[in-house]
Amino acid sequence: MRVLCAGDEFVGNNLLADAVRAEVPAEPEFAELSLPWPVEPFGPVGGVHEASGTEDQVIEALAGAEVAVTQMAPFTKKVFAAAPGLKLVSVCRGGPVNVDLPAATEAGVAVTYAPGRNATAAAEFAIGMILAAMRRISTSSAELLGGTWRGDYYAYPNAGLELEGTTVGLVGYGAIGSRVAKVLVAFGSKVLVADPYAQREQIAADGAELVELEDLLRRCSVVSLHARLTDETRHLINGERLALLPEGAVLVNSARGGLLDYAPLPGLLKSGRLGALALDVYDVEPPPADWALRDAPNVIATPHLAGASRQTAERAARIVAAEVGRYARGEQLANVANPDVLR
C-alpha cells in the first residue's frame, strides 16, 4: 500500500509516518509532501477552505498512492480527478475543510477526520484567555515591559473579576466547550450554555445550565465562544447581540473568527461597554496592518494558537493512522465525513 504523508510544520511527516507504521502490519510504501503551514498562513485553494500548498503539488505527490494522510493539503475536484487509485484521505483536523467532500464522494474516496484532537489544548487555552482578560494579565504585562507601571489597576473601578462566583456563558458545548465548563465549575463559576444541539441532562450533570443565547448574553459577565462555524452560526454574535451584554463584560473567541462580527468591537471597547476582548481567531488571518482593534483598549490577541500543543499534533497523527489501519484491515472506518461513499 502506497501512502502519501502530506505533513506540515506542526503535524510533520515523521509523526504521520511513524503513526501509520504502528497501525499497518505490512510496511507501507511512503511518499511525502511537506507543506509550509503554519509558517505561511492557510487560505482557500481550488474551492476548499483553509488549505496549504497547491493542487499541482498534491497531484504530483499522489502518484500511485492509495491512501493520503494530511492536515492541510488541498483535496479538490481537480486532485481527485488526477488520482484514480486514491481510496482514502484521512485528515487530522476536527473537520475536513480542506477537502471537497462532494468531489471525494463522486470519486469513491472515503474522507475521515479527527474529532477532539485538540479539545484539551483548546479548552486549556480558552481558560487562560478568560483569566488573562478578567485580570488584565497580558495587557498589564505589555504595559510594564513598555515602561508603564499601572498601579491604577488596583483601584476598585479598574480591578478585575474573580472566576469564583462569576456567571460565565459558553456558546457551544462540543468537545471543547464541555471541557471548559468543567474547569469553570471547579473554579466556582456559575456556567450557562447556549447550544441548540446539546443535551440538557449532560449539561446539568456537568454542573452547568442550558439557556437560550439571548438569555445567556444578558446574564453573563464573561462569554466564551466554542461553536462550529457554519452558515447558521456565521456572525452569530453580531452588533445586536453584543448590545445585550452587561456593561464591562469580557468576550473571548478562540473558536472561529466567523462566529463574531468584528466591526462593532472597537467602538464597544473604547466606550467601555465591552470591558475586555480576548481573541485567538479573526475574520481575516492574519489581521491587516490597519486593523481597528490594534488601537482599542483592553485587547488580548494571539495568532490562532489554541490548538497548538505537542500533544495535539501527536494525537492527530494517531487518529488518522488508526483510520489507515482500519482501512488496511478491511474494518469499518470510525469518523467518515462522507458516509454515502461507503454505500
Rank of each mutant, 00 (worst) to 15 (best):
M1H: 01
M1T: 12
R2P: 12
C5D: 07
G7A: 09
G7C: 05
E9N: 15
N13M: 00
N14I: 14
A22G: 10
P25S: 15
P25Q: 14
P28Q: 09
A31K: 07
L33H: 04
P36R: 10
P38S: 01
P44G: 03
V48F: 00
V48P: 00
A51P: 02
D56W: 12
D56E: 15
E60Y: 13
A61E: 07
A73P: 11
P74S: 03
K78W: 06
F80Y: 09
A83R: 05
A83D: 04
L88A: 08
V91R: 04
R93N: 07
D100W: 06
L101E: 08
P102W: 03
A110F: 03
V111F: 13
A114R: 00
P115K: 04
A119L: 06
T120C: 08
A126V: 11
I130H: 05
I130M: 12
L131I: 15
A132P: 09
R136H: 15
L145K: 15
G146C: 05
D152M: 13
L163F: 10
G165E: 00
V171F: 03
G172L: 04
Y173E: 00
G174M: 07
G177W: 08
G177M: 10
R179G: 00
K182V: 13
K182S: 07
S189Q: 04
V191C: 06
V193T: 01
E201Y: 07
I203C: 07
A204P: 07
D206M: 05
D206Q: 00
A208W: 03
E209T: 13
E209V: 14
L213P: 06
E214M: 09
L217Y: 02
R218A: 14
R219L: 11
S221A: 13
V222W: 10
S224T: 12
L225P: 11
L225R: 08
D231G: 15
E232H: 11
T233I: 00
R234P: 09
E240Q: 13
P246N: 10
L251F: 08
L259Q: 07
K270S: 12
S271P: 02
L274E: 03
Y282V: 05
Y282E: 00
E285C: 10
R294L: 12
I300L: 14
A308K: 15
T312K: 04
E314H: 09
A317W: 00
R318Q: 13
A321S: 06
E323W: 10
Y327I: 06
A328R: 09
R329E: 08
E331Y: 01
Q332D: 14
V336R: 01
A337E: 12
P339Y: 02
